[in-house]
Computed example of a mutant assay.
Amino acid sequence: MLFTGRITADAQTRTVSGDKQVTNFTVALNQRYKTKAGEKKEKTAFVNCSYWVNPGLAVYLTKGAIVEISGWVEAQTWENRDGKVQADLVCSVDTVKLFGNTTAKAADKTEEKKAQSKKAVAGGEEDDDLPF
C-alpha cells in the first residue's frame, strides 16, 4: 500500500533480538470531504509504522514531517482493560520518501546531540588544554 501523511511524533529507534534495530513512528492520514448538505468534514486515521532497514533515518522522521510510505498494511486487534476489542492499522514499511525541509531539523538535532555528548564527556566543563 502507498500512502502519504504527517508524522505525529519524533520516531523512536529500539534494539530487538540482539543486534536488530527497528524505527517506530505513527503517520496521520487526513481525509476532507463535503456532505450532501454542503457541510465540510474531516476524518483522520493513524497508522503505526515499523521500519527495519536503516535506523539512521529516525533523525529525519520528526513530528510534522510529511512522508510517503510504501509497505504492507494490516489491521491488528487487541483488548483494552475493559475487555473491549480495539483495532490499529499497522504498516511494515518498505520505503520512506521524505517531503519538505526535514534536513534542517535533522542537522539541528544532530548538533544538539553532539553538544550534549561533549558536555557529558567533559563533565559539563570545557577543557582548554587539549591539543585538538
Results as ranks from 00 to 15, higher is better:
23 T>R: 02
47 V>P: 03
97 K>Q: 09
104 A>R: 08
68 E>H: 04
19 D>C: 01
33 Y>I: 14
125 E>S: 15
69 I>R: 00
122 A>R: 06
35 T>V: 06
39 E>L: 08
42 E>R: 08
34 K>S: 11
50 S>T: 04
121 V>M: 14
15 T>N: 08
66 I>S: 07
78 W>L: 09
51 Y>L: 04
81 R>T: 15
42 E>S: 11
46 F>Y: 15
1 M>E: 07
77 T>G: 14
115 A>P: 09
119 K>T: 11
35 T>Q: 12
13 T>S: 04
35 T>M: 10
55 P>W: 06
72 W>P: 01
74 E>Y: 05
29 L>W: 00
21 Q>D: 03
5 G>P: 05
24 N>I: 02
47 V>D: 02
14 R>F: 05
38 G>K: 08
107 A>N: 13
119 K>E: 11
76 Q>L: 03
109 K>E: 10
61 L>Q: 01
54 N>F: 05
34 K>F: 14
62 T>P: 03
29 L>A: 03
123 G>R: 11
89 L>F: 05
49 C>A: 03
25 F>I: 07
93 V>D: 00
83 G>N: 11
121 V>G: 07
129 D>V: 13
111 E>M: 08
125 E>G: 13
99 F>A: 08
75 A>C: 09
104 A>E: 13
119 K>C: 12
97 K>G: 05
68 E>F: 07
51 Y>C: 04
91 C>G: 08
55 P>K: 10
